[in-house]
Design a protein around this nucleic acid. Structure first.
Lengths: 201, 201
DNA sequence: GTCTATATAATGATAGAC
DNA sequence: GTCTATCATTATATAGAC
């Protein structure tokens, strides 16, 4: 069991920054707040990372690595790859909104992998065909990311205790139900859209 | 046709704040930036709103009203209520992430309305039954909000021009397709979750 | 209502001792 | 590697003239 104080100061600073940046946003988090949370001086933070921007980039790279590792372990379905540590998830959510290059890169990678995974599933019959595979993959990814980005809101309504895994399971189950049995019984609305776009847009 | 300069200074300041807060976040936006964007002095901003926090609350209330108005016009489905002006949507996305009281209130209202709307649909057969209506409504809302929060990412992958409405239509259509015809062909994964939770959790 | 000028605090970053 | 002390800049907010 590795305790917090066993980490190098650099790692502790990065972890503290990750948590604070994720919780409050980069702009709302001062270097001093990070240093206090890590139990070091403000000077040391800048000694290690050069600037606040450097610290942000270090967090970006760390999250990128963590998510890639998670994606490597899960063999396709995005839902499995997303059970990273909570601070990493929260940071990622904010980074996606801020449009950092790391988050943009990651989003692209995830969509590409998901599109390939869905195409595979289409071939062997696990996944229904689509008239617009790219749009479907993108939308699917956005949906899987939604409870992550809106985790506080979803958690509050579904359980009270945000750290409770029951919340995540309930949401995941409800989502799966919609995606297997469907939500709407007829394709009235769908037809309206098809007319507007053509079948293979 | 009402031009920008016809608005009172107070309204112009609020609109400018809405746009900048939504684009960059509240913390990353200075009162001076807002005043410059609105074409007034920094002092006037604080004269009208007391403080930066007061300005933020004014934006919150404005967005709350705008969304409620939109929801009143659309008679149930969340997707229709979300076609508010782009600045309002972007502001709302950030507010949801920041967990402002207005955004929290709004999220709760939306989920409640959606749950009622889904229950209605269940009764007259438009909507399939659910084993966990609350979780389904919450997840559905989170999904409909996802392209809003992740709009930049989705737009980039689906069209290039973020302001292009074709992007929104493609995403909406792909989503509808998944929610009508389903995505997964068998309920293998769903069964696994049902076992873990019991049927009526 | 609107501006300019200013007070005061906090922030990112640097320099140098240990 | 780590700290303290300090600088220059920028931020919010106030006071008072017009």
């Amino acid at each position: 069991m590795r305790s917090v104080s066993d980490l190098t100061a650099r790692a502790r600073i990065r972890d503290a920054a990750l948590a604070l940046f994720g919780a409050d946003g980069v702009a709302a988090t001062s270097v001093r707040a990070v240093s206090a949370s890590a139990g070091v001086s403000a000077g040391l933070v800048l000694h290690h990372f050069g600037s606040k921007e450097g610290l942000r980039q270090a967090c970006d790279e760390y999250v990128l690595d963590a998510m890639r590792e998670g994606a490597r372990l899960a063999d396709g379905d995005l839902a499995d790859a997303l059970d990273a540590a909570a601070p990493v998830r929260r940071y990622l959510a904010r980074a996606l909104l801020d449009g950092t290059t790391a988050a943009t890169t990651l989003f692209d990678e995830i969509v590409a992998r998901t599109e390939a995974w869905l195409a595979d599933g289409e071939r062997d019959g696990r996944i229904r065909p689509s008239s617009d595979p790219r749009a479907r993959a993108t939308t699917y990814v956005a949906w899987m990311l939604a409870p992550l980005v809106l985790g506080d809101q979803v958690g509050r309504l579904l359980g009270g205790d945000p750290a409770d895994s029951v919340v995540a399971v309930r949401a995941a189950r409800a989502g799966l139900e919609m995606l297997t049995r469907g939500l709407f019984t007829d394709d009235r609305w769908l037809s309206a859209y098809s007319g507007a776009l053509g079948e293979n847009r």
